[in-house]
């Protein structure tokens, strides 16, 4: 479970808050989608609650553990897939996975089981001895996915995980998300692809200009639109709802 309470962050070389008094609760057993336009603060939020960035104010709890007070324990419970897989091109895939295994203190037996399982699912088994630099973007993304699951985290955090994935791997990823949620774990993922969010997510949050403008289910979002007097429109897709919500949020801010 991931809980953020009144979290704010301003980058050192910026005068604008990247995230502003953001509060969010991501329960276990749910696939939680995190949506927002470019530059809305999605990656900053993820980096803050994963411990990569220190918030200016507010608290972050991972399974009830405060990130600020017990960062190592909190991080141990997170498996993060970064938005940019362009890392460690000079390492071989297996060296990278072993490094992750060491850092998360995973025994050889466990890491072998998990690496074999996930590498087979994502079709990377044959190339684990190769240098990461020779991988395509999609292959790097799959490697990042495998690495994030080596320690079987209770909170799986994915930042734009579908980018570069082939249909088979995208399907495997969605299956994995559902399996983990069934096992009572938390899956948090940010995306721009509304169709995926609509099909996969149990709950979602929408962020714009560093502030959460909606949290709840897609049905909640539809009801909210109807209660705002828009009526039941023909196009009630998440994409349409998202665009309208962001527009109305910006209009009200401008006023």
């Amino acid at each position: 479970m991931i809980e953020l309470s009144s979290v704010s962050k301003t980058y050192a070389k910026s005068d604008r808050k990247a995230i502003d008094s953001l509060s969010l609760s991501v329960p276990n057993g749910k696939i939680f989608g995190f949506l927002g336009p470019n530059g809305a603060g999605k990656t900053t939020t993820i980096r803050v609650f994963c411990g990569a960035l220190e918030p200016d104010s507010g608290t972050v709890l991972i399974d009830g553990i405060a990130m600020a007070e017990r960062p190592l324990e909190a991080k141990q419970r997170i498996g993060l897939v970064h938005d940019n897989p362009e890392l460690f091109n000079r390492l071989k895939a297996m060296e990278y996975l072993n490094f992750i295994g060491d850092v998360f203190r995973i025994s050889t037996r466990e890491r072998r089981e998990r690496i074999d399982e996930y590498a087979a699912r994502f079709g990377l088994s044959d190339v684990l001895s190769a240098s990461i630099g020779s991988f395509s973007r999609g292959m790097k993304q799959k490697l990042g996915l495998i690495a994030s699951l080596i320690h079987d985290p209770s909170n799986w955090v994915l930042d734009e995980p579908m980018v570069g994935l082939d249909p088979q791997s995208a399907f495997e990823l969605k299956e994995l998300m559902r399996q983990r949620v069934k096992a009572g774990k938390c899956v948090f993922f940010s995306t721009h692809v509304m169709e995926v969010a609509e099909k996969v997510c149990n709950e979602l949050a929408i962020i714009d200009k560093g502030r959460i403008i909606f949290t709840g289910t897609i049905e909640d979002l539809r009801r909210r639109k109807e209660s705002a007097g828009a009526g039941a429109a023909d196009d009630n897709s998440l994409e349409r709802l998202f665009l309208e919500l962001v527009d109305s949020s910006r209009e009200s801010e401008a006023l």
């Binding site: 203190r105 050889t108 890491r111 044959d126 684990l128 001895s129």
Partner: peptide, 29 residues
Amino acid sequence: GKRRKNGGSEEYGRRQTPIASLLAREIRL
């Protein structure tokens, strides 16, 4: 020679301490 040998069990190194693993990462990179 880049394809993995059958099973590749020798590749799953013994578990190291984080410092040793960070050091190995440093040197390799």
